[in-house]
């Protein structure tokens, strides 16, 4: 007896796991840059966050599949179905934490919240309503004061965070928004001397990863660029068409990390092409607008807010098949 199924009988080699591995590879440059800039603390945060994320998913699976019936079989089944999504969540969460934190329990709690509550409670991979890493970061942000203080990136010996350069009130962008001193665009691009999260300071590393994702066909190149461009241009418009604001708005804060790696999360973006364009333009407008009105960095909040609108966008857009005739719709009216 042969296998029976409906057509098609052949399939692409691409799997969910291979896509998630590509995202992890794309985040490598930013992770390395973070460790170089912020020292061994950054590495420890990344490792704790990754381990906590995977362990949370593992424990959830064990409970869900009643491990006490056959422990070895359950663990093997878990390994077979493990799709690396929790690794991506853990790494992204670590990359948007400051290197200087209250204690090692912070990435641990964040990861457990992100994977356990935001993802698994809603049904696991593909079922979460909001991006788990973003939700984890915001959970930590509203729980710990450390999340409002960011050390500046430096090329000092590994293991030394230059505490004297700690900045309160979030990022460089914030100081700029509040009328303070601004760094040069090149510094913002390379992340040297920029205060920020582990993964967001070095824009060069992020863009290298983004190019890799585009080449591998994981994300559509125009969506993050749309978000970034709309944010920059709207910021310019809000400052009375002062175009010197464009590059600082684009290069500072978590915009590039958020646009390239977080907002593009498949699960929490609309399904259709048109829906995605609407989503990313709205994100850009919201980000620039909220940055101007609140004076703090808001990329993660904007993504969280827009995540809730995804299902509305999906319900509003209906497919127009090849050969669709407009007159039919008008006749119906």
């Amino acid at each position: 007896m042969k296998i029976l199924s409906t057509a098609p009988h052949i399939k692409t080699r691409r799997t969910t796991r291979s896509i998630m591995l590509d995202v992890l590879i794309a985040l490598l440059p930013a992770s390395i840059a973070g460790i170089v800039y912020f020292g061994w603390q950054a590495a420890v945060i990344i490792v704790i966050s990754l381990a906590a994320a995977v362990l949370t998913e593992f424990v959830w699976y064990l409970i869900e599949h009643k491990v006490w019936r056959d422990a070895r079989e359950t663990v093997r089944a878990w390994a077979a179905q493990f799709d690396c999504t929790s690794l991506v969540t853990g790494l992204l969460l670590a990359l948007c934490l400051p290197a200087h934190i209250d204690g090692w329990y912070m990435p641990l709690l964040g990861s457990i919240f992100a994977v356990g509550v935001v993802k698994m409670l809603f049904g696991g991979t593909g079922k979460n309503i909001v991006n788990p890493a973003i939700a984890g970061r915001i959970f930590l942000f509203i729980s710990f004061t450390a999340m409002t203080v960011y050390p500046a990136a430096n090329f000092g010996p590994l293991g030394e965070v230059s505490l004297d350069r700690l900045q309160t009130g979030a990022t460089t962008l914030t100081s700029g928004l509040q009328g303070g001193e601004m760094l040069s665009n090149l510094d913002l691009f390379l992340g040297t001397g920029v205060a920020g999260c582990i993964g967001e300071t070095c824009k060069l590393a992020l863009l290298v990863g983004f190019v890799y994702l585009c080449v591998r066909g994981v994300v559509k190149w125009y969506l993050p660029l749309l978000y970034i461009a709309v944010t920059g241009l709207f910021a310019v418009a809000l400052e009375g068409f002062d175009f010197t604001w464009f590059l600082p708005s684009v290069l500072s804060g978590g915009l590039i990390l958020g646009a390239c790696f977080m907002a593009t999360d498949y699960v929490t973006t609309p399904k259709s092409k048109l829906g995605n364009i609407i989503y990313f333009v709205a994100l850009g407008l919201l980000t620039a607008g909220l940055r101007k009105t609140t004076g703090i960095e808001v990329v993660s909040f904007c993504i969280l807010l827009m995540n809730f609108t995804v299902f509305l966008i999906d319900l509003a857009i209906k497919p127009r098949p090849f050969g669709y005739v407009r007159s039919k719709k008008e006749a119906k009216k």
Binding site: D83, T85, G124, F322
Partner: peptide, 29 residues
Amino acid sequence: EETNADEPTPCINCGRCADACPMKLMPMQ
């Protein structure tokens, strides 16, 4: 190896089906 008879896993909403559909439909929906 040719048939790739894997078990289905949850939809991750990547949109590849809609991008590939020659009739511009939304298979995931």
